[in-house]
């Protein structure tokens, strides 16, 4: 009961914003074209759901986002751990990571289109490249911090090099790696929607751009809110997953 009350208080500001939005729009305090009432946005959302636009565009966005992120986690994570354990790799790759780090990844949108065209491939590549940086850095920093006594311990009980990576280096790196992935998750949403806005015929970003340019602002708001909510939900679920994976920490 107390928990329910706490949650209610926590989300109260959101409710206030929703009510204020509706009121401002209804009272014609701003142009209703620029800010349609929330109730109309909700109606537009149901329309978009009914005709399947939201679901089909959402599905292709989700596919691109998760494929890019998955590749970034697998390849970036492995790369970061190997860099931490192997000096030659570190010397070769680290300068590249540092060079690539400050580059605004959205600048790569035209480049990836040039390479892979307007379809899924260019979006996946863009998200992969952008997300790889925080994942690699997280894995690298985490793995470098692994306690040598734990490595010794595993060695003396008969673990080989691969097993030590999997059994000791990876779990040691996990807290920082998971934080890196969380950053990557947020970045994936940004890159996904902005690239779809600019160059795409499908996806959330495309739908936002299309509805905006044809003057269906209620629909546009509905998609924007959907993306925001989805991002929030994904981050929440991810945090729960993180807590579970790191349950061994005090």
């Amino acid at each position: 009961m107390e928990n329910v009350a706490k949650t209610a208080v926590r989300y109260l500001p959101i409710v206030i914003v929703m009510v204020a939005w509706e009121a401002i729009a209804r009272l014609n305090l701003v142009d209703t074209l620029a800010l349609p009432p929330l109730s109309k946005v909700a109606a537009a959302w149901f329309d978009l759901m009914r005709d399947g636009e939201l679901v089909s565009n959402g599905a292709s966005s989700l596919y691109r986002g998760s494929a890019g992120l998955l590749l970034a986690v697998l390849i970036g994570g492995t790369l970061g751990m190997i860099m931490a354990r192997c000096r030659i790799f570190d010397m070769l790759i680290n300068p590249l990571v540092e060079l690539f780090y400050p580059l605004p990844k959205s600048a790569l949108i035209p480049v990836t289109v040039l390479w892979l065209g307007f379809g899924d491939g260019s979006k996946i590549l863009l998200i992969f490249l952008g997300c790889m940086i925080p994942v690699t850095i997280g894995a690298y920093n985490g793995a470098r911090g692994s306690d040598h006594a734990l490595l010794w311990s595993a060695r003396s009980m008969g673990a080989g090099s691969f097993r030590m990576m999997w059994d000791v280096v990876l779990p040691s790196a996990l807290p920082e790696l998971l934080n890196g992935i969380r950053t990557a998750l947020a970045l994936a949403f940004i890159l996904l929607v902005s690239s779809e806005l600019i160059v795409s015929q499908r996806g959330f970003g495309y739908l936002i751009g299309y509805l905006g340019s044809t003057g269906s602002y209620e629909g546009m708001y509905a998609v924007v809110l959907t993306v925001a909510l989805l991002g929030f939900a994904v981050d929440r679920i991810y945090q729960l997953l993180m807590q579970w994976l790191l349950r061994w920490r005090d």
């Binding site: 006594a149 595993a154 003396s156 779990p171």
Partner: peptide, 21 residues
Amino acid sequence: AAPGPDRGIVFQHFALFPWKT
């Protein structure tokens, strides 16, 4: 030449895997 399971060691600071029970 290298560590091996023929020589078991109990480390001064235990060196337990914190992620294992």
